[in-house]
Amino acid sequence: MAALFELHSSRSGFPAVSLPLDSGSPDDALVRAAQHGDRSAFGLLYGRYARIVHGILLSRVPHPDVDDLVQDVFLQALPRLHSLREVSKFPGWLAAIARNRATDFHRRAKLHEVLDEESAPAETDQPSPSLRPSAHPAAEARAVLDAIRSLPDAYRETLVLRLVEGMTGPEIAMRTGLTHGSVRVNLHRGIQQLREILGRKASPLTGGGL
């Protein structure tokens, strides 16, 4: 699309604002610079937070729609950034926008149609998810992802960030604004519930499950 440009390679239309290198955390400095109109800084924030936004969305909406929605979330965040008074709360603020965007997606996009569309192959070729090697890894992966999505919000989000996005617990805490303790509990309980779900779904023939 000709009307779009890559953020990290352009500052056109905005004054160049140098990052304040001597105050707060690195992210705080980027948020402040972005609030002052530095699109490059916002692009750098995107680089740091795209994974977390992707994970939050993936835990709530169908995979094929996630990339578009990630862009949407940052499109929504940019013009509102000036309203963020405490820059240190940027991680939680952005995560909230992502969660709201997912809710909005379901409200607007006729949830049942979309989910039926995505889950249709499961009825024909989706094997029971298990941790043992499968002849249908793609279908099995979708089934595992669906199982994760069936968990309570806090657990599914944290598990997606850990297992899909490859983030560590401390990273998740830092990027979502959650405490280490909360993330640790979410991971622990989430994986337990996932084991139970996958154990129930596993085929008797494979004797599988976690």
């Binding site: 990290h8 056109s12 239309g13 680089g47 990339d67 996005e165």
Partner: peptide, 21 residues
């Protein structure tokens, strides 16, 4: 198994005239 769903690094694209305020 789930790595295939991971975020693929790519640049953020924005409308050039989107004002911050």
């Amino acid at each position: 198994l789930l790595a295939q769903f991971r975020h693929a690094d790519g640049p953020l694209v924005l409308p050039e005239n989107l004002p911050i305020a």
